[in-house]
Design a protein around this nucleic acid. Structure first.
Lengths: 234, 234
DNA sequence: GCAAAAGTGTTGCTCATACACCCATGA
DNA sequence: TCATGGGTGTATGAGCAACACTTTTGC
């Protein structure tokens, strides 16, 4: 990333650096309530500026990869995760984002499924945080995460993105829990299930989830487009 | 922009170039029907690649300006226009956008009011085109315009962006014509006016537009936020 | 049987559409 | 007086929120 030893006169001469960062969301059960909540992985900065603060996974754009490929590699490198959804969020290019060299960051946001997220290993310098319990992050990354959350909340309401958080088969209650976690409010189970059943992009299987201490719920499958993201390029 | 003389081995060594481009929309009356249609200014390329093809206004990012300022300067330089709305569209970074050096373009889109657009002077190398009558443009600019149009159509339906196309005072029929031009379909005047009057962000003046050959319509004024755009930074 | 979640039915409200109809002006 | 768009009234239907109610399981 930025070179800390640069001074102001150097700064004026260098072209803006171009970096890719990624906000990665997954759902994990809350320790207390056991209900799903939004988590994301961050990396500890080992260099100045903002040394020892947590930051979004990111890095420079390599020569021979597209922006989206760079974001995907990014995910792979820092957390070994394969996203089920990946979309460009925004390009941040304010003058004072970094105290040293000017950096323009093209930020992506991603969703990962719980089985994939479970594989992610935490290390000294990679840790998962609850999205609503972040401390102060490096650079403008708090702002970026807030914006990504805003986009997630919007998108969950008018698209089928919620299934990117779930495995192949799921109960309607699990879908509802995704919505409740993202929107931060409880939804009427009866009305919610009707809305889902009216949607054309899920279908009932003839399997039921056993093991609860109540009537076993039916399992459903997502039948809509499985493309991991969208944008102007299709 | 890109340096045409670069060869492949040079290309691999240079970092990706960072450029800003802007899609500028204005409404102009169609010559035949006299109804408003969407137009945008393009600039003729005077250098390779894509010499003599039309392209979006754009240029490199200067050292000491934010992305949005660069887009605004861009508008000013090529068309002398002040936008009434300006928002980031997308960052395009595919490997083969330019046949020479790799270019990452951060694209903005803008709306201008008719009085402002009327001031724009056409020159040998700057001309306005109907958005639905563009020929082949340079680079991937057809794709970019299509995406900008898609965003415009979406945004007009859930935000108050339409007023950015209009002057200070306007009739409800003029607002309807904006929607019809953008959405490409006719709307019921009676129902449309009810929807607008239910909205809180316009208010009636006590003036009427004289000069038509029918009952003079009342003029209204937009009272909502006048901020020329939005994004994660507020 | 009882608790708990799955799943269904019903009612009432809000809002969009369709369209009939009246109003005010210029020619 | 007629044509034209401005402007109002109203019936119909779709969709959603609220909530009562039935079903099926584990204990």
């Amino acid at each position: 990333m930025a070179v800390y030893s640069a001074n102001v006169s150097e700064r004026r001469q260098q072209p803006p650096e171009l970096a890719i960062s990624t906000v990665i969301f997954a759902l994990r059960p809350d320790a207390d309530s056991a209900r799903p909540t939004i988590w994301l992985p961050l990396v500890r900065r080992t260099r100045q500026p903002y040394r020892d603060l947590w930051a979004l996974p990111g890095g420079p754009l390599s020569q021979e990869e597209s922006l989206q490929d760079a974001a995907r590699r990014n995910l792979q490198d820092t957390t070994s995760l394969q996203p089920s959804y990946l979309e460009q969020l925004y390009a941040f290019g304010g003058l004072d984002r970094s105290p040293v060299q000017r950096v323009v960051s093209i930020v992506y946001w991603a969703l990962v499924k719980p089985d994939v997220a479970a594989l992610a290993r935490e290390t000294e310098n990679v840790r998962w945080f609850r999205a609503d319990h972040l401390g102060q992050l490096a650079f403008d990354h708090n702002q970026i995460v807030d914006y990504a959350l805003w986009r997630l909340r919007n998108k969950v309401e008018y698209s089928s993105i919620a299934y990117a958080f779930l495995g192949e088969k799921f109960t309607l209650a699990q879908v509802r829990e995704v919505y409740e976690a993202v929107l931060g409010k409880e939804l009427d189970p009866a009305n919610f299930r009707r809305q889902l059943r009216a949607a054309t992009d899920i279908e009932a299987t003839d399997e039921y989830l056993q093991g609860g201490r109540h009537r076993p719920p039916r399992l459903y499958r997502y039948t809509g487009s499985t493309s991991p993201g969208n944008g102007p390029l299709g």
